[in-house]
Simulated scan of single mutants.
Amino acid sequence: MNEKYIAYETLVANRDAATWAMYSAGASLVSAFLTLFAIGVAAFQLKSWKMQEELGELKNFRLAAFRFQRAIAMAPQSLCKRERLDDREFLALMKAYEAGDSLYETTLVMHQVETKNRCSEIYCEMTEIFESYTDGAFTRDEARDQILDIRIREPLLNPQK
Rank of each mutant, 00 (worst) to 15 (best):
G100M: 13
C80A: 12
H111S: 11
T106I: 02
E131M: 11
E83C: 02
F68I: 03
E83G: 04
A64S: 12
Q112G: 03
A99S: 15
F66S: 12
S78P: 00
Q112I: 10
N117S: 12
E125S: 10
A96K: 04
F90G: 06
A71V: 03
L103V: 09
E121G: 12
A96M: 14
E98S: 12
S102D: 13
E98A: 14
L108F: 05
V109G: 09
R67I: 00
L55P: 00
S78Q: 09
K81H: 08
S102Q: 12
Q69K: 08
C80H: 08
R82L: 11
F68M: 12
M126H: 02
E54I: 10
E121W: 03
E53F: 06
C80G: 01
L93A: 13
L79E: 03
E89K: 03
D87M: 03
Y104V: 02
R84C: 08
E57Y: 04
K59F: 13
N60H: 06
E89M: 05
S132R: 15
R67Y: 05
V109H: 07
T106K: 13
E57S: 08
R88I: 11
V109A: 13
Y104K: 13
L108S: 12
L63F: 11
T127D: 11
M74D: 11
I129G: 04
S132T: 01
K81M: 06
Y133G: 10
A73C: 04
M126N: 12
I122E: 06
I129Y: 02
D101V: 01
H111K: 12
L91S: 10
A64Q: 06
Q112W: 04
L55F: 02
A73N: 11
Q69N: 11
C119G: 10
C80E: 08
T107I: 05
G100I: 01
L79Q: 02
F61K: 06
F68H: 11
L79C: 04
L79D: 02
L103P: 07
E57D: 08
F90A: 15
E53I: 05
E105F: 02
A99Q: 08
E105I: 01
Q77E: 14
F61H: 12
K59G: 03
E98H: 09
R84T: 13
R62F: 09
D86P: 04
S78H: 02
K95C: 02
M74G: 04
L91K: 07
E83W: 00
L85C: 06
C119S: 15
E121T: 11
E98Y: 07
R88D: 13
L79P: 01
E121A: 10
K116L: 07
T115G: 05
N117G: 07
R118E: 15
M110K: 06
R67L: 10
R62Q: 14
D86E: 13
Q69I: 00
L55S: 12
E128F: 00
E114G: 04
L85R: 07
L93Y: 01
L85H: 03
